[in-house]
Nucleic acid binder design. Structure first.
Ligand SMILES: [Mg+2]
Length: 277
DNA sequence: ACCCAGGAAACGC
DNA sequence: GCGTTTCATGGG
């Protein structure tokens, strides 16, 4: 168990960060969290101004949780009105994680038209397939299937994992990635609009999933994913009333100029407190 | 029995 | 191009 000392003013809330719906393979312990990320099984807890963690090194912790990112710049940039200010206040210390792009991609293909508990269950079943009865415990902490493995799975197998109609999307995207080995470099080096077009070529990836992958997997903070909750919450702004998702996204990106993705995630994380604002 | 959930794709016009 | 329908799944 290693210790990481947070600097004074280095705002970080572990519970908000892991529980806000940006990652799906972290589980609460009695005191702290255990999860799978980037080939590692990690346990971590927060205590006063320190993090205590095992399963990775300090470099990983800083990178994964983006601890060197200056959150005060984000907050001052997006605190433009009382509505978003309430979300910001409720989300103090929430950081957008730097996920593995492939893990993020299949996670959010799994996310379409589903709620968070179902998404978590679906991803767990896919990663732990085929089921091994000799392993006890609710969670396997098994690695995400690599593109090679996922491409070889069959639709019936993925249906057993409760993938539903997303089964063929997962297989199709895995096969497409096998034929596009430098997809991460290509997506990384172009702007939001172009990278979104690239990702949308993949089956099961549309505007919303693409922007989640760009935000959480590539940390493109211009991204502003619009799901059913964000669509509802953004009705607060007259510019978005009755508008389609595309226009809502365009407004969010323009209005929250420097960090739209953070504004979006703070709104999403505070959705239950904002819904009857 | 309906409605909903971090939507996308196919279809009809 | 734009609106509608379909697609699995489990919980409320
Ligand atoms: Mg697509």
């Amino acid at each position: 168990m290693d210790q990481f000392y947070l600097k004074k003013g280095q705002s970080f809330n572990l519970d908000l960060t892991l529980g806000c719906g940006q990652v799906f393979r972290w589980y609460r312990l009695e005191n702290g969290w255990k999860g799978y990320a980037k080939g590692r099984i990690i346990t971590i807890r927060s205590e006063e101004d320190s993090l205590f963690y095992a399963g990775c090194d300090e470099k990983f912790i800083r990178e994964y949780f983006q601890l060197d990112m200056e959150l005060s710049d984000v907050v001052s940039s997006i605190s433009l009105d009382p509505y978003i200010k309430k979300a910001v206040r409720l989300c103090q210390g929430l950081r957008i994680i730097h996920q593995d792009p492939w893990e993020c991609l299949i996670s959010f293909i799994c996310s379409s038209n589903a709620n968070i508990p179902m998404i978590e269950k679906r991803i767990e079943l896919i990663c732990s397939y085929p089921p091994d009865e000799s392993i006890d415990g609710e969670y396997s902490f098994a690695p995400f299937p690599e593109p090679e493995k996922l491409a070889q799975m069959t639709e019936p197998e993925l249906m057993c994992c409760k993938a539903g109609y997303r089964a063929r999307y997962l297989i199709g995207t895995a096969k497409a990635i096998l034929n596009w080995p430098d997809w991460k470099e290509e997506v990384k080096k172009v702007g939001l609009s172009e990278s979104r077009k690239l990702l949308c070529k993949l089956p099961g990836v549309g505007p919303k999933v693409a922007e989640c992958v760009l935000l959480f997997g590539f940390n493109k903070y211009e991204a502003f994913p619009v799901d059913v909750w964000i669509r509802r919450l953004m009705e607060h702004y007259p510019e978005c009333k009755g508008k389609k998702d595309e226009e809502i996204g365009n407004f969010g990106r323009k209005y929250f100029s420097s960090f739209p993705g953070y504004a979006q995630q703070y709104l999403y994380a505070a959705r239950k407190e904002l819904i009857d604002y």
